Amino acid sequence: MKQVYSQISSVAPKPFVKWAGGKRQLIPILNENLSKSFGTYFEPFLGGGALLFHILTERKGQKCSISDLNSDLVLTYTTIRDRIDELISSLKNHEKNYHKDSKSYYYSVRESNPRSEIEKTSRLLFMNRTCFNGLYRVNSKGKFNVPLGRYTNPNIVNEKNLRSVSSILQSSKVAIKCRDFESVLRDAKKGDLVYFDPPYQPVSDTANFTSYTNKNFTYEDLNRLADLCLKLDSRGCNVLLSNSDSKEVADVFSGKSWKIKKIHANRSINSNSKKRTGHFELLIKNY
């Protein structure tokens, strides 16, 4: 079994969920903007973890502390790490039932509220693979509310990548927590790198999408984040932050500690494909 496992997990790990604001397409730019050396890597808005997987692949033995306020997402990371065989078995069951009657099965799973960690995790991954546009969104009651997507043959199990992710999380020094972003201040010390990729500030009245949890990321939260970044800066931490190309963001990071760079980025999950291109966002750092 170990031989099969090592062959399957030899592919480079990549994000196992499609997440609004995911950073896979920006990895080359983010990599150029990492500090040359750092202690522990912190990522308090984890999401799909594109930069985390890049760092773990490129820097063997890198110590990381990752967290998110979405408890279902955090559970998914720990389940993939600790119980991969059971999870894959559950996903294969979803796949089999989906192909019998995709519509009725999708909505029955969407309405379900499983208790076990395995079933909760496989439900999230199944919904993410089969829902409209791969969009993770919950309403104010925390209920997943995205309709069925139009897919001929979605890759529901994606076993090679899941085993690769499990393998690298098991073999690395990665602490995974469910907590608010401010908690990073308790642990980060001089020389550490903290990457913030929060839900973006809207650039227009209709562009407000912050529903990864049932709590919106507000302008007050942005100011709380800016204050935290200043505290980390005064402690000697390397701080890197992604956000939208908006006046609010530029204003709260207008102090002398911050270097702001405008970068080109596409939007991978806008429902209108013509609106996915031609966007800019800001990359802000203190080093």
Rank of each mutant, 00 (worst) to 15 (best):
Q3L: 05
S6P: 00
Q7R: 14
F16R: 01
A20N: 06
K23F: 05
K23N: 02
L26T: 14
E32L: 15
S37G: 10
G39P: 04
Y41S: 12
L46N: 03
G49P: 01
L52A: 05
I55N: 02
E58L: 12
S65K: 09
I66P: 01
S67V: 04
L69A: 10
N70T: 05
N70Y: 13
N70A: 11
I88P: 00
Y107F: 10
N113Q: 13
P114T: 08
S116D: 10
E117D: 13
T121L: 06
R123E: 08
C131V: 10
L135Q: 01
S140A: 13
K141N: 02
L148H: 07
L148A: 09
G149W: 02
N155P: 00
K160S: 14
S164R: 06
S171T: 11
S171V: 04
V174P: 01
K189R: 12
Y195A: 01
F196V: 03
F196M: 04
Q201A: 09
Q201P: 00
V203D: 03
T206G: 03
N216R: 13
A226L: 05
N238F: 11
V239G: 04
S244D: 06
D245K: 07
V249H: 10
A250R: 15
W258I: 05
K262E: 04
S273G: 00
L283M: 14
